[in-house]
Design a protein around this nucleic acid. Structure first.
Lengths: 332, 332
DNA sequence: CTGTTAGCGCATTCAC
DNA sequence: GTGAATGCGCTAACAG
């Protein structure tokens, strides 16, 4: 255990610990001669200050907290990757929690980070109405919401323009020829609702469309859900286009459709949202909307760092631009 | 800001702070009457102790540190997921760093966690020889290595039996009929070397095999590498079986092979390692070896928690059992 | 049972 | 330029 403290250094260097402290924080206040002597001792014992003590004494902890919904989800991976790339430049450390889509766990999480005295928090909230958001606001700690647009004008967020993404997709689908459109809203999250809304709003007038709600999150869920949709909505007889608002689920649909002998895109065209890696590589490459999640992470982290380091207080509202990606699943 | 301290509570409850402290840590030492009064005050101000101060005073920080190689990799996602599931049961928080396969960053990372006084560390080391491992050992902090077998008998680790996984695959391939075997060692990591060795050791005697080394990590790398391998090793003329020691790269190979008009598995059978999600869902489902990475995470975390909570010191060496998964890419 | 005292390791006035 | 004193918030050993 590194049990050497600032006192040890001070003793060995024959100075007071104040001087040692100064050498570390504001070196120019110390005479060059003594400074060098002290630095030598510090080097010798490879001394590094105890962060807890520094924190107690009021210094920043150089930790930032991140709350995501779950780890086993490429979305949050990419997000973390983006975040990591910018905060590690600043020698900050990441403290991560998963809410597992549970508001209680979410609030537990941010409390725990608050207790750990992180310097700032990045939150991908279960909902913009989460009690966690309120708690964060009250705490006064710098924070940025990710993947969620705050209603409160004072709260900073970085998200994707999901509405616009839905719109892009609708326009693409308008250009195709179908007897009916089926929208599958995969689970209840604001980002998903926005996609759907943007899509619906831009569908050509007079288009026959049906919206189905489910709580599908995974490939398997899509695979299991597909037959019911086929039967209810006579996909076998009507030339159909499906918008499944999440790629991973959409890929499950496609797999099941193929097994059921439904031709893609001839009989059923399928579009997703997110552009996960799988989408380009699965059996029938998936038409989808891409949002650069890494970029979202980077921008959110950068915004937070500015709040922390530069004390910027004006709320930042940033929307990542979505990109339509047309692949085989809707034909060309 | 929650600026209420233990003193405030003590004052309002008309007791000394020691008593308040006791109520929080060993309530049975306090008379019921006073305990309840104090709890009421604590409740009233929703007071929670400052962890930094607790840490300084020698209490555990209830933080554990995890160093992974990179975030944008399904392997580490699953690992984190597994780890998270067990430590969050114990109300511990995760502090995460990525080494980006860089030993310097790795050591930086563990130093930073050490400074943050985490109670224990989980390290997926770049190499079992990493200086970081030495530093960890010297530090005396409880730690467990993940995805890497320590040479040092005193160091605990949880990994996959990669050697055996390679062996399983070799036996499967022995049962098929090929004129040559090509092994592609995707990048230099002990886990990969073990796979290859297990594979080579169990290949049927007399089998013609070629080993290629590369530094391929992604789908794209595999896609780019494939043509060279085809040409050098006359895959078009000899019935070939390839073992690509990483699924993500293997999927890239397959995609390129298909584009080049090479039939899978008839002309070239392909096997991978890891069983990432993509493997089951890509164009030609991939034969591979599955290691339950989540389980690896859970076991590693559990091992670490036992060290921390129960003070267990005997080194634990655990190997996850690999499972052969045969799919279309090698035929049935 | 409860209060007093003394650190934990550091940053920061304020004197010198 | 440098040192001594004080506080950050909490726990633990020791008295009562």
């Amino acid at each position: 255990m590194n049990h050497i403290t600032i006192d040890d250094i001070a003793l060995e260097a024959g100075v007071s610990k104040s001087t040692v402290s100064r050498v570390l924080s504001r070196p120019h206040l110390v005479k060059e001669k003594t400074r060098e002597r002290i630095l030598a001792v510090i080097e010798k014992y490879s001394y590094t200050p105890n962060v807890l003590a520094q924190g107690l004494a009021g210094m920043p902890t150089k930790n930032i907290g991140v709350v995501v919904d779950e780890f086993s989800n490429n979305f949050y991976i990419d997000l973390l990757d983006g975040i990591d790339s910018v905060i590690s430049e600043h020698k900050y450390t990441l403290q991560v929690m998963s809410s597992l889509w549970n508001p209680d766990r979410e609030i537990q999480g941010i409390r725990s980070m608050l207790k750990n005295r992180v310097d700032g928090i990045l939150l991908a909230p279960v909902s913009s109405q989460s009690p966690a958001v309120l708690e964060l606001k009250k705490s006064g700690i710098p924070f940025v919401m990710v993947n969620c647009q705050a209603a409160d004008p004072l709260i900073s967020y970085v998200s994707c323009d999901n509405y616009k993404g839905g719109a892009l997709l609708a326009e693409h689908i308008n250009s195709l020829d179908h007897e009916q459109i089926i929208i599958v809203s995969v689970f209840d999250h604001e980002s998903v609702r926005d996609r759907i809304k943007g899509f619906e709003d831009h569908l050509r007038k007079g288009t026959v469309s049906i919206t189905r709600y489910s709580n599908a999150k995974t490939y398997r869920d899509g695979y299991d859900l597909a037959p019911a949709v086929v039967d209810y909505d006579s996909i076998r007889t009507k030339k159909t286009c499906l918008f499944i608002s999440n790629d991973y689920v959409a890929v499950g649909f496609i797999a099941r459709f193929l097994e059921m002998g439904i031709a893609i895109p001839e009989q059923a065209a399928v579009a997703g949202f997110d552009d996960i890696r799988l989408s380009a590589l699965c059996r029938v490459p998936l038409t989808t909307v891409s949002q650069s999640v890494q970029e979202m992470g980077r921008i959110a982290a950068r915004t937070l760092m500015e709040k922390i380091l530069l004390n910027k207080t004006e709320p930042v509202k940033y929307l990542i631009e979505p990109r339509l990606i047309v692949r085989e699943s809707t034909g060309f």
